[in-house]
Amino acid sequence: MSFVTRGFSGRRREADPRLPPGQTLVQDWPVLSAGPTPQVDTADWEFTIRDETGADHRWSWDELLALGVEDVTVDIHCVTHWSRLDMAWRGVSLDKVFENVESEHEYVMAHSYGGYTTNVPLEDLLDGKAWIATEADGGPLDPEHGGPARLLVPHLYFWKSAKWLRGLTMMPDNDPGFWEQYGYHLYGDPWKEERYW
């Protein structure tokens, strides 16, 4: 029987306190996609919030940007176990987008060009926690990364940050979106490892 002295072969590397459990730091930006990449020109792009009355609140590309684009530096955690730290984004705060939208509903379904959906509680989109991102890493968002605009909800797993965002629909209940129907967690907190059902 061997006897191993603790610390004999060097200290185990301390876990990075900014990495949630089960995550690995990457420097590149992996592309994940569940289907064909939509090609949407900003001239044709439109963003809509539909409230419970069925009324649509619409923004063109220029109208969205006119709400004010801000710099955002956040950590990103993908459910497939990679994380990026201090990622530089630019986008429009959803607080500004929701400024003139009245709704009693507490949940939101994000809809994408191409048909993707994901559900998020409204409170997770407000108070400086979420953006409609139009730029990343110092340039416009490439289509493969969700351009021209994607949702950015960095405190939840990255599948909640829907690429190719086209609209939000207010919901009375927390109905599941695409991955949430097919096995992924309804909420998706990376610090609690809420990956699957």
Partner: peptide, 25 residues
């Protein structure tokens, strides 16, 4: 079938509709 995703996503070759998904936990 899209494999670079949180699960396998099989789509119809004619209309792109999602036919099947497989999530490995």
């Amino acid at each position: 079938v899209w494999t670079d995703a949180p699960g396998l996503v099989a789509r119809c070759a004619s209309c792109d509709r999602v036919l099947a998904t497989v999530v490995d936990t």
